[in-house]
Write a protein that binds this DNA or RNA. Structure first.
Length: 282
DNA sequence: TACCAGGTTCCGA
DNA sequence: TCGGAACATGGT
């Protein structure tokens, strides 16, 4: 994949390795706006990227070139990852072929934690809406434009349960308030969390309110780039039972997939998820 | 009108 | 440990 960094933009030659629509709309991220098929706005922390797609190039316009270069994982060769995954397991390989161009985004850990607590038992449209309202109320305008930053920990520490209820978070409001307060602690400093191995980090994340196994795995994958996890939701359960008859708990299904895909589990999960929601039963 | 949405918590067995 | 009800809210 040909990538060129300039002062205020990243220019990427279109290829099978990067599909903006698939990457943004596969449910790993919520704080983005689709202007039309060829124009997206992405907000991460207090940073903004305007993405334009034309015949030949994907252009990421931003003041934070290095940040979004890392965010879109542009140093990683996804064609190699895909090739490795397809050679692991013949049962699943024909379904993993779908989802070309999906990249795992290296998102902000705090934003990911809040986002996926909101995501529980919720639909994507509503998740996005709630998160945008949280940004509008507690974030700040970016570059004086009409887009709001995702609030940081300090900005959300003042938020009350009533605030979140008013923004539509429902019964998750209490979880949000409790979790935000827990995140103040030294244990949850990003520098401390980043040192942990995946197992310990998962255990730590599970102590947060509103964070169960599935949300923890999403945080690990999208917020900490731990690709040796396999988030199991209703779709992944369906995928599992397409091939297996033995009834298993969601935790065990996750372990089952990780035992197959190992450090590529997160990528495999995204490809399989993409197949399930886009092609299965259609 | 009921059911569902990228589930978690809480409780009883 | 395991299974099941309850949990806000808006879309369909």
């Amino acid at each position: 994949m040909k990538v060129e960094k300039q002062k205020d933009k990243i220019i990427i030659e279109k290829s099978l390795d990067f599909d903006v629509k698939e990457t943004l709309e596969c449910g790993q991220v919520f704080s983005f706006i689709k202007k039309d098929e060829n124009n997206y706005i992405v907000i991460s922390r207090n940073k903004l990227a305007k993405i334009n797609i034309d015949e030949k190039y994907i252009t990421i316009n931003t003041n934070d070139v290095d940040y979004f270069y890392n965010y879109f994982d542009l140093d990683t060769d996804y064609s190699k990852i895909k090739e490795r995954i397809l050679n692991i397991n013949s049962t699943y390989s024909k379904y993993l072929k779908f989802g070309n161009g999906i990249r795992i985004l290296k998102q902000d850990a705090f934003q990911t934690i809040i986002s996926f607590i909101v995501s529980a038992n919720n639909n994507i449209k509503r998740i996005k809406n709630i998160l945008f309202k949280i940004s509008e109320k507690f974030g700040e305008k970016i570059n004086g434009e009409d887009y709001y930053s995702f609030p940081n920990l300090n900005q959300l520490l003042v938020a009350t349960k009533e605030d979140f209820i008013n923004l539509g978070a429902g019964y998750r409001s209490e979880y949000l308030v409790q979790t935000i307060n827990m995140l103040k602690g030294d244990i949850f400093s990003v520098s401390n969390l980043s040192k942990m191995n995946t197992k310990d980090l998962r255990k730590t994340l599970l102590t947060l309110k509103g964070v169960g196994p599935k949300v923890a795995d999403c945080i690990l994958l999208f917020g900490f780039y731990r690709t040796d996890v396999f988030p199991v939701d209703t779709w992944m359960k369906k995928a599992y039972y397409m091939f297996q008859t033995k009834k298993m708990s969601e935790e065990k299904i996750a372990n089952y997939f990780v035992s197959i895909f190992k450090d590529l589990s997160g990528f495999a999960q995204q490809y399989l998820f993409n197949y399930m929601i886009n092609f299965k039963n259609k």
